[in-house]
């Protein structure tokens, strides 16, 4: 039973950032399937930029991203859409747009030019809504939902896309604490149940430490990923909070203010 680990996303000497500002320099790493990985780093460290680079929404400065062994630069938008589902920070708040009609376009890469859904597509949309616990909301208008509910719908849309990889850019940014936990636990469950590779950028480190399988830390042009225990063990939290008033209390597993000495 020596099951080989699968790494759907691989960064190969990847550098990303902007012309005048390098964010990540020659990173070599991989994200594992069936795992929920949190991408952490300080403001402006390059979390969003990295996610957008993996999703091929922007070009790398050098190096490349491999999805299941293929360089994304050689893939069409549709091929990428068959592998990567993306939940961005864009707010979808359109009058009269039904929840079902937000999730249904997730099937776009699987349908023909008319975009008409087959019975299988409809099943996938319903399954996705059920997985995030929004099955009874299909006919509601997206504009009338709470932030937490809307975020679930956006995750359902990515699920309906039926991809091995889902990337999420700060999906819990505007949510209250119970909702943040709900979303993280949901993503963890989805990674395990559906064997998906889920990567989510976040500033909610304490929740990530309690719910994620692995933590990827962007720290000074470098990115390193390891299982959550190891991350804590090796002082990843201390590195993240270096030079701030915060520290991580290992006995209580919480982030707290440094005690003045």
């Amino acid at each position: 039973m020596n099951q080989q680990k699968k790494y759907p996303i691989r960064l190969c000497a990847l550098s990303t950032g902007y012309d005048h500002r390098l964010l990540i320099d020659k990173a070599d790493m991989a994200f594992e399937a069936g795992r929920f990985t949190a991408l952490v780093g300080r403001n402006g460290a390059g979390k969003s930029t990295l996610l957008r680079t993996i999703a091929a929404l922007r070009r790398p400065l050098s190096g490349h991203v491999e999805i299941n062994g293929t360089d994304t630069a050689t893939l069409s938008r549709r091929d990428i859409a068959l592998s990567i589902g993306f939940v961005s920070t864009e707010e979808v708040r359109i009058a009269d747009l039904k929840v079902y009609d937000v999730v249904a376009p997730g099937r776009a890469p699987h349908t023909n030019w008319t975009g008409l859904l087959t019975a299988t597509d409809h099943e996938q949309v319903k399954k996705a809504l059920a997985l995030v616990g929004m099955g009874s909301f299909a006919d509601k208008c997206i504009a009338n939902l709470s932030d937490g509910e809307r975020q679930r719908v956006m995750i359902a849309r990515a699920l309906a896309q039926d991809t091995p990889i889902i990337l999420l850019d700060e999906p819990t940014a505007f949510l209250d604490l119970p909702n943040k936990y709900e979303i993280f636990l949901l993503l963890k469950r989805l990674a395990e149940q559906e064997d998906k590779c889920i990567v989510c950028s976040t500033h909610d480190l304490d929740i990530a430490l309690k719910t994620c399988h692995a933590i990827a830390l962007i720290d000074g042009h470098d990115i390193k990923c390891c299982p959550t225990d190891e991350f804590i063990e090796e002082g990843g939290t201390e590195r993240l909070f270096a030079g701030t008033k915060l520290t991580y209390d290992r006995s209580t597993h919480t982030i707290c203010l440094k005690i003045q000495e």
């Binding site: 938008r77 068959l82 864009e90 937000v102 376009p105």
Partner: peptide, 23 residues
């Protein structure tokens, strides 16, 4: 009328449309 599917995708914003496979 041929652009109905792309228009429905664009409704969610460029990032979503793009990552759902739209050119």
């Amino acid at each position: 009328l041929l652009l109905i599917k792309p228009l429905n995708m664009l409704l969610l914003g460029d990032n979503y449309a793009s990552t759902m496979g739209l050119n």
